[in-house]
Design a protein around this nucleic acid. Sequence first.
DNA 1: AGAGGATTGCTTGATGTTAAACTGGTACAA
DNA 2: TTGTACCAGTTTAACATCAAGCAATCCTCT
Lengths: 150, 150
Amino acid sequence: MSTHFDGSAEEQRALDVYIKLTRCAESVNARINQRLSDLKLTISQFGVLEALYHLGPMHQNELGQKILRSSGNMTMVIDNLCKRGLVERCRNEEDRRYVRVSLTPAGQQLIHDYFPEHVKIVLEEIGVLSPAEQEKLQHLCKKLGLGKVG
Amino acid sequence: MSTHFDGSAEEQRALDVYIKLTRCAESVNARINQRLSDLKLTISQFGVLEALYHLGPMHQNELGQKILRSSGNMTMVIDNLCKRGLVERCRNEEDRRYVRVSLTPAGQQLIHDYFPEHVKIVLEEIGVLSPAEQEKLQHLCKKLGLGKVG
DNA sequence: AGAGGATTGCTTGATGTTAAACTGGTACAA
DNA sequence: TTGTACCAGTTTAACATCAAGCAATCCTCT
């Protein structure tokens, strides 16, 4: 991760961009998710509540794809949310492999109350950049995220 | 994380930038670190070897700060690297709180052999952006990473 | 139609990561 | 010197990942 590496200018720059990108994402995420610990929610738990809130009930795998978490993890995340009475599981009777997950009224309430604050925090963080800079960053991230092929 | 949220255009954009940034960093990192599993190294282990390689021996806390990992984790990471004979621990006799960590010849060899490949992979990933785009991205990441105050 | 392999969704198990409590070493002021 | 504060490192509990395993469903071929 260090820059004490003696390669070509091109290599140096690529390594440097890579480090800056990673650290930037890490620190922005750390700041944005800080408030979640007050609610005793992990980032995954918040992601699940938010997905269910905005997209409606889903089965576990679908949820895992939305929030980019492993299916193994979804079992635990949803276990924990169930214990706190924030979501409910319901086995699909037509295809018994699926487990449908939905918000309870308590879960609905919690995410309804918290989400505006979350948006405010994100806005404060990202608002450091001008609208034009935001568009530019978004464009570059999209290009980079797709990789060589895309 | 979803964009199915009905707020102001400004809020929508901020959320969108935030998601793109996070996903971009995640996918770039996933691709870059894929090769490490061949070496049976975790990202943290690689970070430690690389830091020691380019910056020389350090004590554990210092290493943890370089690679952005908790001190608790450093204990385990270095335990595992010790077991594989890639690094050595040495208690500082002048201040017995400190543990100095250094590369063994085997560790030196491993990182020496692998690092050029790592650089190549990073270059391939970041190289999808033109030099000007890289400079721009770096600039935006720096600004965003510092946050409101910086 | 029915048998058996492939596929799919979820759970389990091994391991890595973090935060926070804990242990032991050092410094400093009374 | 002793009490307090601080610092480096370890331990522990909870949560994350991946890979392997299990159960339900689908698909193909006769």
